[in-house]
Computed example of a mutant assay.
Amino acid sequence: MVSKINQVTFDARDGYTLSKFWAEVTGYTEHPKYPNSPEDEENFIGPGGEHPGLLFINVPEGKEIKNRLHLDISPDTTRDEEVDRLLALGATVYEDHRKPDGTGWVTMRDPEGNEFCVERSDAERAAAEAAKGEAS
């Protein structure tokens, strides 16, 4: 037997607002039968509104230490363009691990301080592999 991941849950001061941020990041949507609301204790978004998705639960305490679990995201655009887009949405750069050869990632924080990483896109990885093949 195995278990499936139904959702990844975030404790949040304002789960509704955080769900809106992550919906912009991921393109996930709320479930059409269960729309999110600022008054709700729980706010869910998922691919096509379905599971697995992200659940944001309101809690009274704020985030105080580094996440033990975080999301790694791979953009449709370039990593650097995605970092700029996420900064405009309210994320902040926590640690920049980009290297001169184009590898690496950027650790960012969402508006409530939860860490996540922005990796290179699949296209950037493929281009780097193709360049290695041409150099051989």
Rank of each mutant, 00 (worst) to 15 (best):
D11Q: 08
L89D: 09
S121C: 10
H97S: 04
E115L: 13
T107G: 01
K66W: 05
L69V: 15
C117G: 12
N67C: 09
G46E: 05
I45Y: 01
S3H: 14
V118C: 06
E119G: 08
R120A: 09
S3A: 15
N43R: 01
G46R: 06
V8D: 12
D11R: 09
A135I: 03
V2W: 09
C117N: 12
G27P: 04
E24Q: 15
G102N: 07
P47S: 10
L71S: 08
V8Q: 11
V25E: 02
T107P: 00
R68G: 13
M1L: 07
E115Y: 00
E124F: 08
A126W: 00
T29E: 06
N67Y: 02
T26G: 03
C117F: 02
A23V: 01
D40W: 10
E115R: 11
K20E: 11
S74W: 01
K33V: 07
P38R: 13
T17L: 05
D14R: 09
E82H: 13
T78I: 05
T77N: 06
A12Q: 02
K4A: 15
L71F: 15
G90T: 08
K63L: 11
F116N: 08
E41K: 14
R120C: 08
L54R: 12
G48P: 08
V93D: 02
Y94N: 13
Y34D: 09
V59L: 04
I57V: 15
D110W: 10
T77K: 10
E30H: 04
E112M: 02
N67Q: 06
N36D: 08
T26E: 02
G15R: 07
W22F: 05
M108I: 08
R68Q: 11
A126G: 01
D14E: 14
L71T: 12
G49Q: 10
D110K: 06
K132E: 11
I57L: 14
K132T: 10
P35F: 03
A12V: 04
N67F: 03
A12M: 02
V106C: 05
S121I: 09
R79N: 06
G102E: 08
N6H: 15
T77Y: 02
W105N: 13
R79P: 00
M108S: 06
I65A: 01
E24A: 15
E115D: 11
K4G: 14
A123T: 13
V25S: 06
H97G: 01
R125C: 00
K33A: 14
E64F: 07
R79C: 10
L86G: 09
K20C: 07
D40G: 12
A88V: 04
I65R: 12
A88G: 14
A131I: 07
F116P: 04
E134V: 00
G113E: 05
M108K: 08
R98G: 11
P38F: 06
T29G: 02
F44P: 07
